[in-house]
Structures are given as C-alpha cells and as structure tokens.
Amino acid sequence: MLRLGSSAKSVRPGKVYGAPGDGYSGHISVMTAIALIALWFLVTGMGWVKPLFLPSPMAVYGKFISAMTDGVANSTLAEHTMASLTRVFGAFFLACVTAIPVGIWMGVSRVARGLFDPIIEFYRPLPPLAYLPLVIIWLGIGEFPKIFLIYLAIFAPMAIAARSGVKSVSIEQIHAAYAMGATRSQIVWHVIMKAALPEIFTGMRIGIGVGWTTLVAAEMVAADRGLGFMVLNAAQYLASDTVIMGIIVIGVFAFAFDLLVRYLEKLLIPWKGRI
C-alpha cells in the first residue's frame, strides 16, 4: 500500500492534474541537439575518427554549399530535393485518398475487412526491397514505379490506423446518434470520422516516415536524380560528406513535415486527450 508521509511531494494542480510526462520538453530537445553537434565537433576536431568515416561539420556544410551551387551527381541539391519531394508527397497524397477510406471501410464493414485485411497484413511486414523486383517487372523503370513503391509502403500503416480509429469509437456515441434519428451515412461521417481523426493523423505521421525510409529503395530504380539517388551514388565513391549531407537534408524535410502534421492535428482535433 502506498503511504504518503509529511515529506511526500504534492502534485501540482493544473491543466493536466498529475499526468505522467506533463510539461514542455522543447528546450530539452534543443539542448540535446546542441550537445550532439558539439560532440560531433569535438570528435572530428580531435581526430578521434577518420574523416572517411565521420567528416567534420564544416566539411559537410562545405559540401552542402557546393551541392547547392555546383551540384553533385549531375544535378544541384535543389533538383535532387524537388525530385524526391515530388515522389514522396505524390505517394503520400495517393495514400491519403485511398488508404484512409479503405481503413474506414474496413472498420465499418466485415466484408471489406475480410477482403483487405489479409492482403495488407501479408505485405505490410515485407521490406520494400523484397517486392522491388516485382514492381520493376510489372511497371518498368519509369517515374510511376518509384512513386508506387513508396505508396505501397505508406498505404498499410495509414489504412490500419484508420481502421483502429473506427474501432475506438464509443458505442454509446453511435447509439445516441441513432436515437436522434441519424442515418448510417451520417453516423459514419459525423460520428465515426471525427472520433477516428486522432488515429488517422497518427497513421499519417507514421506513413510519411515510412515513405521517407522507402525513398532510397525507390530511387534505386534507374533514377538519375533524387536525394536517395544522391546518397547511393556518393556511397559508391566513399564520399561520406555527401552521404551525411543527404541524410541531414532528408531528416530536416521529414521532421518539418511531421511538425506540420502535429500543428494541423492540434488545429483540427482540439479535443484530443481531453475526452
């Protein structure tokens, strides 16, 4: 039994009363990033690691400036970035307009669940490189196969998240809506969709992250530009400064989009975590 003595620290009342993990952590994240960068400067400046394995931050920054102006692998960094953004966000948009409706349909219909669930659960654990040869054989080596490969990787987590969101809807809310005369379509749109939005946004965040991780595999298919292609091409020549620069650029764009989705989530779902 938990005993509270006179020395026990009282819980601070507030917006969330005693919730584990409550409080702002942004300043801790900033300090962590600064500490890691400082460690990077220290390790490379002291010569503890050879530049081949870990180039200095200034070398990576110099490569960034060179890639922006002179280019790398026959294209500028802006051209590589635009090609990758087009592929990732094109696949993400296609997944949004297909995976979310399919996930909701799976949640409200046992027939749809029986049709799609085995397919999604079968290919979801497979790494994209496993079915990359089939994508090439079926669709060729143009631009669409690259987008399609990323799309497949994004589709599964988004559909599963949407289905999970439907299953999280309180049955009392559905019964109350029926009692007020709502139709089945109104139940799906006004009750189930709104209740499932938190899970859907979580699926979007997971999906876009998976999309960025699949980018390198997608750009192995006869690509001539793209961030993944740039990293792979640099790795063949042991240009670690270009590799790290490309990784940082990919990470910055992925993190920026994740922050955007978080902002939209707070804007569109202000009730999340309060009911």
Results as ranks from 00 to 15, higher is better:
residue 140 G to A: 07
residue 141 I to W: 01
residue 144 F to C: 08
residue 145 P to Y: 10
residue 146 K to W: 02
residue 146 K to Y: 04
residue 147 I to P: 07
residue 148 F to M: 08
residue 150 I to C: 06
residue 151 Y to L: 11
residue 154 I to E: 07
residue 154 I to A: 10
residue 155 F to A: 07
residue 155 F to T: 10
residue 155 F to I: 08
residue 155 F to L: 11
residue 157 P to H: 09
residue 158 M to Q: 07
residue 158 M to E: 05
residue 158 M to L: 15
residue 159 A to E: 03
residue 159 A to K: 04
residue 159 A to I: 06
residue 160 I to H: 03
residue 160 I to G: 01
residue 162 A to W: 00
residue 164 S to W: 00
residue 166 V to Q: 03
residue 166 V to C: 02
residue 167 K to A: 10
residue 171 I to M: 11
residue 172 E to R: 12
residue 172 E to W: 04
residue 174 I to M: 12
residue 175 H to F: 11
residue 175 H to M: 13
residue 175 H to W: 13
residue 175 H to K: 15
residue 176 A to M: 15
residue 178 Y to T: 12
residue 178 Y to H: 14
residue 179 A to F: 11
residue 179 A to V: 13
residue 180 M to F: 15
residue 180 M to S: 13
residue 182 A to D: 05
residue 182 A to Q: 09
residue 184 R to V: 13
residue 184 R to F: 13
residue 185 S to D: 15
residue 185 S to P: 01
residue 185 S to L: 15
residue 186 Q to K: 13
residue 186 Q to C: 09
residue 187 I to R: 10
residue 187 I to T: 14
residue 188 V to E: 14
residue 189 W to K: 15
residue 190 H to A: 11
residue 190 H to N: 14
residue 190 H to P: 02
residue 191 V to E: 11
residue 192 I to T: 12
residue 193 M to G: 04
residue 193 M to N: 11
residue 193 M to V: 14
residue 194 K to W: 13
residue 195 A to G: 15
residue 195 A to T: 13
residue 196 A to Q: 09
residue 198 P to E: 08
residue 199 E to I: 02
residue 199 E to G: 06
residue 200 I to D: 06
residue 202 T to M: 11
residue 205 R to Y: 03
residue 206 I to F: 11
residue 210 V to L: 12
residue 210 V to A: 12
residue 211 G to M: 01
residue 213 T to G: 09
residue 214 T to Y: 06
residue 215 L to T: 01
residue 216 V to G: 01
residue 217 A to L: 04
residue 217 A to Q: 02
residue 217 A to F: 06
residue 218 A to F: 00
residue 220 M to Q: 12
residue 221 V to W: 04
residue 221 V to R: 00
residue 221 V to H: 03
residue 221 V to G: 00
residue 222 A to I: 06
residue 222 A to Q: 06
residue 223 A to T: 00
residue 223 A to E: 04
residue 224 D to M: 03
residue 224 D to S: 06
residue 225 R to N: 09
residue 226 G to K: 04
residue 226 G to Q: 04
residue 227 L to A: 08
residue 227 L to E: 03
residue 227 L to S: 00
residue 228 G to P: 02
residue 228 G to N: 01
residue 230 M to C: 05
residue 231 V to I: 15
residue 231 V to W: 00
residue 232 L to S: 07
residue 232 L to I: 06
residue 232 L to K: 00
